[in-house]
């Protein structure tokens, strides 16, 4: 049966002629397999035009280059020089997010009580994020971008709710992972940022990361006194690292910091310190100097932990993470509602 179409036809596939079969088809199959067997000892499949040779990539040692477009989880950008975050809390990403895992509160000027184009707290539930990249696409200020770091496996589920301090990455980091993409939007982004900085005051809009970055640069960081702060330094340095060979070191650093945080948490922070941190972490009380946050943090939790609970909460040891997460979510959502009016 042959049916003619506009361009092309329907044709019946050839099932082959019935013939005496003494295993010749099986021998052909064996031949194919043994050829692969021998070529796998001599060749490595490097380019897509080859069809034989070992194509295993021995992952932790060998890594495939990631294309610029690669998207894993969203991160927030801040300017290297001024430390100002690009985000203005316009809520575009929160609205477009299909699984609705982005939450944020807008910063308020403590003197006037008016909202400022900066973000007070930003939270992404990495565990439910589906890496679609719509947030990065929709962001008019190029403040939210998709990261290339995919080695985030953890057994700490609550730690997958990531807050601003952990989301923040310097622009220079994004430039290393996606140079052409950043070059496309660079001018517009900086222009918009300049406009927004004018409307911010004090420490509003300053990245918590930016505050620790100079500390890392200072030689003082090398002192043994900064023992707990060391993971901080490594972690902050991490985003600058080229996403290539250093990946495993970076992962190690992250692991270390998570562990340090867990240990600190298990030990239980001194109540007074916890109080203090709570005060500094209060989302509305942004007038507190970021330096204070930075100072308080190593004492209470030992390094920037991946777990957001440690970071801002200074949670008493008996509070479970899940409860804390619920509370946080509730407060942020109510805050959002209130602000939207």
């Amino acid at each position: 049966m042959t049916v003619e179409f506009d361009r092309g036809k329907a044709y019946v596939v050839d099932r082959g002629q019935p013939k005496l079969r003494a295993g010749q088809g099986m021998i052909a199959g064996l031949d194919v397999v043994i050829r692969h067997f021998f070529s796998a000892f001599t060749k490595k499949l490097e380019t897509p035009d080859e069809t034989s040779g070992v194509f295993t990539v021995q992952y932790p040692e060998e890594r495939l280059a990631m294309p610029e477009a690669f998207r894993n989880f969203p991160i927030l950008l801040f300017d290297d020089t001024t430390g100002q975050e690009l985000c203005t809390s316009c809520f575009q990403c929160e609205r477009i997010c299909p699984p609705q895992v982005i939450h944020m509160t807008q910063a308020v000027d403590p003197t006037t009580g008016k909202p400022v184009p900066a973000v007070a707290e930003f939270m992404i539930e990495y565990d439910a994020c589906m890496s679609c990249g719509l947030c990065a696409e929709v962001c008019p200020f190029d403040a939210i971008k998709m990261d290339h770091d995919f080695e985030l496996a953890t057994d700490d589920r609550a730690g997958m709710t990531v807050r601003k301090a952990d989301l923040d990455r310097p622009v220079s980091y994004y430039e290393t992972i996606a140079p052409t993409r950043w070059a496309e939007v660079k001018d517009g982004a900086y222009k918009k940022l300049q406009g927004n900085i004018k409307r911010r005051s004090g420490s509003i809009g300053l990245s918590p990361r930016a505050a620790t970055a100079p500390k890392k640069a200072a030689p003082a960081a090398a002192k043994p006194a900064a023992g707990v702060a060391k993971p901080v330094a490594v972690k902050t340095a991490m985003p600058m690292a080229a996403p290539g060979k250093n990946m495993s070191e970076e992962k190690l650093a992250r692991l270390l910091s998570i562990r340090a945080a867990n240990v600190a948490k298990a030990g239980g922070a001194a109540p007074a310190e916890a109080e203090e941190v709570l005060a500094t972490a209060d989302t509305d009380d942004v007038a507190e100097a970021p330096a204070a946050v930075a100072a308080a943090r190593p004492v209470s939790s030992g390094g920037i932990p991946f777990s957001a609970d440690n970071l801002l909460g200074g949670v008493p040891a008996n509070t479970t993470m899940a409860e804390d997460k619920v509370e946080r979510l509730k407060s942020i959502r109510s805050g959002n509602l209130a602000r939207r009016g």
């Binding site: 067997f37 295993t56 021995q58």
Partner: peptide
């Protein structure tokens, strides 16, 4: 090991 080589693996 042998089957892996036949399948272009290690």
């Amino acid at each position: 090991r042998i089957v892996a080589r036949m399948q272009d693996r290690l």
